[in-house]
Simulated scan of single mutants.
Amino acid sequence: MVTVTVSVKEKAPVKIGAAIALTGKYATSGQYYKMAWDLAVDEINSEGGINGRKIQLILIDDQSNPTNTANAYTKLIQENGVIATFGPFTTDCTVPAANIVEKFKVPMLSAGSATAALYQRGYKYYFGVFPPTDAYIPPIMETFNSLKDEVKTIAISYESTDWGKELGSKLKDAFTNAGFKVVVCEERENGGMDYTPLLTKIKSLAPDAYLDAGHTTDEILLARQSKEIKFNPKIWYGGLTADYNFLKNIGAKDAEGVMGSIAYSSNARTQGNRQFVDAFKKRYNVDEVEYHAGIAYAAAQVLFDALKRAGNNLSPEAIRNAIAQTDMETVIGHVKFDNTGKDMYSFMPLVQIQNGKYEIISPSTVATAHVEFPKPAWGG
């Protein structure tokens, strides 16, 4: 008897790509994006991929440098042949990336930029699941308005990036319009080595609350130097302190009472979140799921759903149209885009570190704890 073996040619993979910070100052955050995307890709491929085609994820390290981003996305599209992309981390890197995908008409699902200005540029191929700066304000103001009898004066600093400037400006306007006195609103260096002069100046104004619009690395240094000069306002807020790297570096005792904003919580009771958290912890042997990982995973959920709905016509335009029609549940909640590419349901809860954990204190509809006020002095 003769046995004939028939070789079935495997279908060509569906190529998607991204430039992400795997080295440089944002590498810690960038690694979380990679980890979440790798998990999502392996999960969907184990289920048969997209209409029988496996996903191939192509990543380029942008080294945390916006000057590398445009070239990276050009290479992904023209040389690697990707038909859809994830966005990079930080607004400074996302702006040049969005310009490139718009030029080549290849869709981008962004999970790393919060600037609202990106949705005002008329892009047709850019979509974002990360809450824009507008979403930071209502939860912050809900908490501050509840403390108006105790909190009168506000000091604000912000990093010298598009996102930092935008959030700093929105914070100043929101507090001024609500009747608080903003004693200073000052731009600072992004990635600085010494913020003591700035903090000393702000301390001399004796504000009831201090808010900084900055990324985690800078917030760690600002917290340490606030402790060094004994700057202990009643409220200390750092834009991206809701990152377990902040808590690990500062320590639970010093971090007690610090506030921040968060785009994703591993404790959220959203569809599929428990399964994602368990899978992420098991795969990477970690105790916590950092919020960048959650928002990145949600971007993958949206993109893969759109790829499935695009059917056999996996052209960039068909994928773009499928993304635009998204109306689904994800680990960050419901996602549906308006005609600017912004998620209509995104919001940015205000959290506070209490007893070594991030507790949501606003909005009250999803709060897991009441605000701890005033913030204890550094070190308790």
Rank of each mutant, 00 (worst) to 15 (best):
Q352V: 11
N145C: 10
A114C: 14
E329C: 06
G179Q: 05
D327Y: 14
Y73M: 12
K9A: 15
R224I: 11
Y358M: 08
V41E: 03
I55W: 01
I55C: 01
N285Y: 11
N232Q: 13
G341K: 03
C185K: 00
K103S: 08
I83P: 01
E228K: 15
A279M: 06
F175M: 04
I360W: 01
G49R: 05
D162E: 14
A298N: 02
F347Y: 04
T216K: 05
K201P: 03
S266T: 09
D61W: 00
S169P: 00
V4S: 09
P96C: 11
D162R: 12
E359R: 07
L76Y: 07
I83H: 02
I44K: 01
I229S: 02
C93A: 12
A12E: 10
E10C: 04
K15A: 02
N45H: 13
A213P: 01
L222F: 15
I262Q: 01
N145Q: 15
I100W: 04
A322V: 06
K9F: 12
Q275R: 06
P233S: 10
S364M: 10
T91N: 07
Y123M: 10
I332N: 00
P96Y: 02
L167Q: 00
F86C: 03
I235H: 00
F89D: 00
F347G: 00
A36R: 02
Y123L: 09
Y291V: 08
T153W: 04
E256S: 06
M35L: 13
S315W: 15
E142G: 09
K201C: 08
N249Q: 15
G294E: 03
Y33H: 11
F130K: 01
I319M: 12
L76T: 06
K336Y: 07
T365P: 06
R53F: 14
S261K: 05
E372L: 14
A318I: 11
E186V: 11
T67E: 15
A324H: 12
Q352D: 10
Y119K: 02
Q325E: 14
D92K: 06
N321W: 07
F304C: 06
R224C: 09
K124V: 05
P138N: 05
P316V: 11
T28K: 12
A21E: 06
